[in-house]
Design a binder for these strands. Sequence first.
DNA 1: AATCCGTGGTG
DNA 2: TCACCAAGGAT
Length: 367
Amino acid sequence: MLTPAPSATKPDPQDLLAWYDRHRRDLPWRAKPGVTADPYRVWLSEIMLQQTTVTAVRPYYLNFLERFPTVEALAEAPSDAVMQAWAGLGYYSRARNLHACAKAVVEKHGGLFPGTEAELLKLPGIGAYTAAAVAAIAFDQKAAAVDGNVERVMSRIFMVEEALPKAKPLIRSLTEELVPADRPGDFAQAVMDLGATICTPKRPACALCPWMVPCRARAEGLQETFPKKQKKETGQLRKGAAFVVLRADDTILLRTRPPQGLLGGMAEPPTSTWEPDYQPSRAVLDAPIEARWQRLPGTVKHVFTHFPLELTVLFAKVAKGTPAPEDMRWTPRLQLHEEALPGAMKKVLVHALGEIPGGKAKASAKD
DNA sequence: AATCCGTGGTG
DNA sequence: TCACCAAGGAT
């Protein structure tokens, strides 16, 4: 051979499992060592953890478990209660699918989650990753759960030059070959713990890594350049107006967004359309109700996945008995915290009314 | 296959 | 400030 192989050593799953036994994170949805996990809790946590940090999920998970202790309880709950409990966590289609999935498990599977990847995959809100994760963690199936952590770890270990997402099939097959037959669930959680605590996106702690020796990227000093990714551009700023109406009986005008699309099924004060060239000076023309509108100083800014939003807030007081326009309703100000209000809309209400009693949105007045 | 979906933390 | 990212799925 004229050129030496980068590394002939293969990563040993047992080395990772030994590391996991000493350094595993203690998480509320994670069963104690040697104990088989409850499928309902594993599934619930996996849905919440999709594209969401452990820190953000923890309080929501505990609250959900208290309000909906079993899959039956969740299936029987009204949709409003589920959406309200999810409000603030983001990606609200997850909440709708979560509810639909609970109903399907009760109606089609007698209240017991199916134990194979293929059957799990048929349920709403469960894709390739979650099916494998639940199968491995809750049912000891030899399944490869490939999430963002695993993609990062594998792309570094094997120095995958192809960019994501094109590299997904290759990374999946590389992962499948490493899943051990004896502890597939622990292996899945071990790779994710490694990615979350050692093999981090920036400044990975390679010196502490159980797979430092076989890691090809580390051998080249190029670990931080993996995984390669396609760039995506940030969206254009959209502007609009939000209308906060306070009726004399201390109620606020709200509506529910359509079930599909952005913030689907969530509550909000009425707003104009959101467009790049929206003129706030003409916002009163879009008002849902006739009133003496007061344009509040400053704006509310919010960043969605694919575009930033800037809302001008208009405020009005109206007389008791004023009827709500079509498809809108009056909610007592003291019950706003029971509404399924996404973060952006909480910011709007806080901007106009001050802190929401029992709410937990942060104020954000600018300009 | 590429786009659409929230939010909060971080360097 | 800002780009990046976090236990992805549906269409």
